[in-house]
Amino acid sequence: MGSLAIFAGGFGSGKSEVAINFAIDMASKSQKIVFADLDLVNPFFASRDAREKLISENIRLVAPGGELAFGDVPNLPTDIIALMKQDNDMLIDLAGDEVGSLVIGYLSNLVVERGDYQFYLVINPYRPFAGELESIKELRQHLEKAGLIKFTGIISNPNMVEETNLDLVLKGHRRVVEFAAKLELPVKYLTVEERIYNCLPHEYRSIAKKITLYLRPGWLHGSGGGK
């Protein structure tokens, strides 16, 4: 049936950027990639904004389209069900929090039928409600309850966008590792932008994954945001 990776987490944890990068990395190895943007909650900064990039990599994008591409209605693309039953390598990007994971609850039978899948909890400890174990525990519980499947691992995505530096990544990642131990979930990846990746100490290289931010407006850099 091919691989299946599902990306869930709190609002703004970086799911979409991480999922887009996983898909693009996979594009060199697979000709049958399906990327499903199932964020039906909030269309601002959704992964379907990277449509052109994904299509240029020969990735099939399944997402609310046409008039509803910028909608906030429960409009699940109908072809997702057929595609889940076909042989392909699929990535599913969910909306944040438990409302976002309800979609995977609806599709959970198909997920289980496919057999092998990864259900990733994406954590950026610098986001509100993601810096303490209690709220992460609560989040996990809510997401699994809504999604009707269990997490298989954590993606550590510590960042402050343009202000990210190595020290901040390492401190944040250490926190995610502590959370992971308490949650009894493995940290499968540490995602960082290329400029950080190149200075990461060797011991992190085995789980580190380079990412490029595709949804971030370029003009933000140096436009006087965090005064």
Binding site: G12, N42, F44, F45, Y126, M160, V161, E162, E163, L220, G225, G226
Partner: peptide, 12 residues
């Protein structure tokens, strides 16, 4: 604007 409501940036 709606975009600013949804834009993430580091905040002191």
């Amino acid at each position: 604007e709606g975009t600013l409501g949804n834009l993430m940036e580091p905040v002191i």
